[in-house]
């Protein structure tokens, strides 16, 4: 099988309009990947699946990754000659710029027919907030069906042309995307405006109207300390 560089050259020759880049993996696994241009991803995926030398007929794994905005500090060192005539001084100049974040989908492809792989392809969204659409590869590999739904659910990547894009693991009414790095979970998942809550509110309003003490909405049950009856409720009792 071709190396990633050879595959990159083949794709560049076949799809001259597409931007294909090699993403190197610095780790010991050294499985490099191809970053595809979302506009041509579907055509390239079809080519990867049907090309007789590749025949990547099996999409094993679809992963969503969140890359939040990153602040990068660049330090530029310049040597300034000392006007007093001493040795030149080194002055550090720091500039901070924000590297915009994105959401990424990673596909691990293998060939069951030719028994080789993996070829790893990556797709990146334009940003993390409003331009989060990527082309779905489910029409190419049905194996992406549930996995793309899961990525949509947990990361919020919208896969266009997916036949059935719904949440997979979270419930349909859920609002956020919990696998994002900046996700903050709600204080109480279980809270919901039930009839019980509404009735409680009504009772509070009723009690505040009827309460002899102004401003006390819900005095609640009075806790009596043993041996010390509260003055409001203390009454002389007839004892035998």
């Amino acid at each position: 099988m071709d190396t990633v560089e050879q595959l990159h050259d083949r794709l560049a020759a076949r799809f001259p309009a597409a931007h294909v880049a090699v993403v190197t993996n610095p780790g010991p696994a050294a499985e490099h990947s191809l970053l595809l241009d979302p506009a041509h991803a579907h055509d390239i995926a079809l080519f990867l699946r049907d090309d007789p030398a590749l025949r990547l007929d099996y999409c094993s794994n679809v992963t969503g990754i969140d890359w939040p905005d990153k602040e990068i500090t660049d330090t530029v060192k310049t040597s300034v000659p000392d006007p007093a005539g001493g040795p030149p001084k080194t002055v550090e100049q720091k500039t901070v710029h924000v590297q915009p974040g994105c959401l990424e989908a990673v596909y691990h492809l293998y060939s069951m027919a030719l028994k080789h792989g993996p070829v790893i392809i990556r797709l990146r969204t334009a940003n993390r907030t409003d331009r989060v659409a990527l082309p779905s590869l489910t029409p190419v590999w049905r194996a992406c069906d549930f996995q793309e739904r899961e990525v949509y659910d947990l990361y919020g990547i919208v896969f266009e042309r997916h036949p059935d894009l719904r949440r997979l693991l979270m419930w349909d009414e859920f609002k956020d995307h919990p696998m994002r790095k900046d996700y903050v979970e709600p204080d109480d998942y279980e809270w919901e405006p039930t009839a019980h809550g509404a009735i409680l509110e009504k009772a509070k309003a009723h009690q505040s109207a009827a309460s002899p003490v102004a401003g006390v909405a819900d005095p609640g049950p009075t806790i009596k300390a043993p041996g010390s009856p509260s003055p409001a409720t203390a009454r002389p009792e007839a004892r035998p």
């Binding site: 780790g27 499985e31 094993s60 990673v106």
Partner: peptide, 24 residues
């Protein structure tokens, strides 16, 4: 602390291909 990089490891579990994809 593994060095920065990524790896996809998979085995034939009794149910099928079980894989773990890790990014460090």
């Amino acid at each position: 602390r593994p060095k920065p990089g990524e790896a996809y490891g998979r085995i034939e579990s009794p149910k099928g291909e079980l894989g773990f994809y890790l990014i460090s």
